[in-house]
Simulated scan of single mutants.
Amino acid sequence: MQSSNLYVNIAAYKFITFDDTVEKRPQFRALCEELGLKGTILLSPEGINLFLAGLREPIDKFLAFLRSDPRFADIEVKESFSDRQPFTKMLVKLKREIITMKHPLIKPEEGRAPAVDAKTLKRWLDQGHDDNGKPVVMMDTRNAFEVDVGTFENTIDYRIDKFSEFPDVVVKHKDELDGKTVVTFCTGGIRCEKAAIHMQNVGYDSVYQLEGGILKYFEEVGGAHYKGDCFVFDYRTALNPNLEATDTKQCFACRAVVTPREQLSPYYIPGRSCPHCRKEMRETQESQAA
């Protein structure tokens, strides 16, 4: 009988000068295929970002290979588990950035913004202020559809559609956050590496990034001060604070997140359509008729 947590899912990233990505790409691809791993690895001159899943031993062999490169010897990995393979293919891609912000002068390798760990953040949220007495404000750097699945209580959400919109939006709202400590967060921490640096550069005087993102927060302190689940980019769609897959799905047609309640709609046909598709279609027809 197979274990209900047969597959190990790992997420990891590191900002580091990586100028031999073209040479390394076939090595990564060949090893992952040999080990039976699936997922996505992004290789960029600014570093690496990966989401992989496989059995325990192959995952450990991959990590041993990765860490044998001195540049990635200290890479930190977040783990969760699933009863089936959450990815359908294995991709190794070359990218300009491992997370697209379109601000090439922001280089986390040269120095990070201050980070706050999960336990400290929970304590701050419990008491309502940081250790200097400043009110703590949570800022979500993820895309709107991800935020809709779940986020921290009373969080700032600018309803962005892609991360490259974040820099301009956050500049416009800087004055509203004077005198407050802003904690930026995302799924695994990678977006905040750039977001927090940018915020410092444009004049935010007290900004932190949540170390390890939502997934690390779930792992270390559970769901305190968090409402809902955390969107992830694989078949599981969302994880609860116990890092377990939920019943939330994603529509393959329009990519919208479909809640369990929305899945009861006659417009929800797995792999074909959902209520969000229907709404968009109706709005398009109404605008054309006007």
Results as ranks from 00 to 15, higher is better:
245 A>T: 11
245 A>R: 14
245 A>F: 09
246 T>F: 02
246 T>V: 01
246 T>G: 00
247 D>W: 07
247 D>I: 06
248 T>K: 00
248 T>W: 13
249 K>A: 13
249 K>Q: 13
249 K>N: 14
249 K>P: 07
251 C>R: 12
251 C>V: 07
251 C>F: 09
251 C>G: 04
253 A>R: 13
254 C>Y: 12
254 C>V: 05
255 R>S: 11
255 R>K: 15
255 R>A: 11
255 R>I: 04
256 A>L: 08
256 A>S: 15
257 V>P: 01
257 V>L: 09
258 V>S: 03
258 V>E: 00
258 V>M: 10
259 T>L: 00
259 T>R: 00
259 T>F: 03
260 P>A: 06
260 P>L: 06
261 R>G: 06
261 R>P: 00
261 R>N: 11
262 E>F: 08
262 E>V: 02
262 E>T: 07
263 Q>T: 00
264 L>R: 14
265 S>A: 05
265 S>Q: 05
265 S>V: 07
266 P>A: 10
266 P>T: 03
266 P>H: 10
266 P>R: 14
266 P>I: 10
267 Y>K: 11
267 Y>Q: 12
267 Y>N: 09
267 Y>S: 12
269 I>V: 15
269 I>T: 11
270 P>T: 06
270 P>G: 04
271 G>Q: 08
271 G>W: 02
271 G>E: 04
271 G>F: 03
271 G>M: 05
271 G>L: 02
272 R>C: 03
272 R>K: 15
272 R>W: 04
272 R>L: 09
273 S>A: 07
273 S>I: 01
273 S>N: 05
274 C>Y: 07
274 C>A: 07
275 P>Y: 12
276 H>Q: 12
276 H>L: 03
276 H>C: 08
276 H>I: 10
277 C>T: 09
277 C>N: 06
277 C>H: 04
278 R>S: 06
279 K>A: 09
279 K>I: 09
280 E>K: 14
281 M>N: 14
282 R>M: 14
282 R>L: 15
283 E>A: 06
284 T>R: 09
284 T>W: 13
284 T>Y: 09
285 Q>V: 13
285 Q>G: 09
285 Q>E: 15
286 E>K: 01
287 S>G: 02
287 S>P: 00
287 S>T: 05
